[in-house]
């Protein structure tokens, strides 16, 4: 039990002293997950609108399928990405195995279903009369989309927070396609996993607390977006 307290103290020490290695790892974690969340959001916003506002056969089924993918284990996504991008795989020529780039790509695939599913639900929560009013007042469909997104922003931002949380907390994919290379693809979660396997429990807990601190900052920033 003492490890938890000393881990907490260690976390504060590491943050105050701006330990260069820890800062580098934390920065990389933040950069990779923010990038992948941004990319996934850019893909999901229009895609979710398309799915939500169109009627087509199998729509319900598609949404069920998307929701099923929420349960995709991170190592399974990692495995797929690995098989595709490994040098012997179909996209091996890109030579991006064991790089932060591939970690971003993997995380985009990982959080895509959650973002897509939750944004579709978010759009579903918008009042129908509001949309009708917008159009009757002569809004173009782009203007209408903006109005709807504004109206749904609480739920949309909640979806983005969820996606970011999954991205920054996952470890299976990061180890599988990143390789946990010191100074290159090592992020907080893979560092925690390594330190735990070395029996450095105190440092592991400290890194875990730093991860939560980063998540808190990102959440606060996104919440400001929600309130606008």
């Amino acid at each position: 039990m003492t490890e938890i307290w000393s881990g907490f103290v260690r976390a504060i020490e590491l943050i105050i002293s701006l330990d260069p290695e820890v800062m580098e790892i934390a920065g990389k974690s933040l950069m990779i997950s923010v990038t992948s969340t941004l990319l996934a959001s850019l893909i999901c916003l229009p895609l979710a609108s398309l799915i939500h506002f169109n009627r087509f056969v199998g729509k319900r089924l598609l949404i069920n399928f998307i929701q099923t993918l929420y349960s995709l284990p991170t190592v399974v996504v990692g495995l797929f990405v690995f098989v595709f991008f490994s040098r012997a795989g179909p996209l091996g020529g890109l030579d991006i195995m064991f790089t932060p780039t591939l970690m971003v790509i993997g995380q985009v695939f990982l959080i895509l279903p959650i973002l897509l599913g939750l944004i579709i639900s978010a759009l579903g929560g918008v009042d129908r009369p509001l949309i009708d009013t917008a159009f009757s007042l002569g809004a173009s469909s782009f203007q209408a989309a903006v109005i709807i997104l504004r109206e749904a922003r609480y739920a949309v931002v909640a979806a983005i927070i969820m996606g970011f949380s999954r991205a920054i907390s996952e470890v299976g994919l990061a180890i599988m396609v990143g390789g946990n290379i010191k100074g290159f693809t090592r992020v907080l979660t893979t560092a925690i996993s390594l330190e735990t396997s070395k029996g450095e429990l105190e440092l592991s807990i400290a890194l875990g607390i730093i991860l939560l601190a980063i998540a808190l900052i990102v959440n606060l920033a996104l919440n400001r977006l929600q309130q606008r």
Binding site: P46, N54, T101, F142
Partner: peptide, 28 residues
């Protein structure tokens, strides 16, 4: 309903996809 299946919507979608690809490239 079909108000959303306009050319404009498709344009928006394509723009988003283009931006996404550019960003991916930049990250790469």
């Amino acid at each position: 309903v079909p108000f959303f299946v306009t050319k404009e919507m498709k344009k928006i979608l394509l723009t988003f996809l283009a931006v996404t690809m550019l960003l991916t490239l930049a990250v790469g």
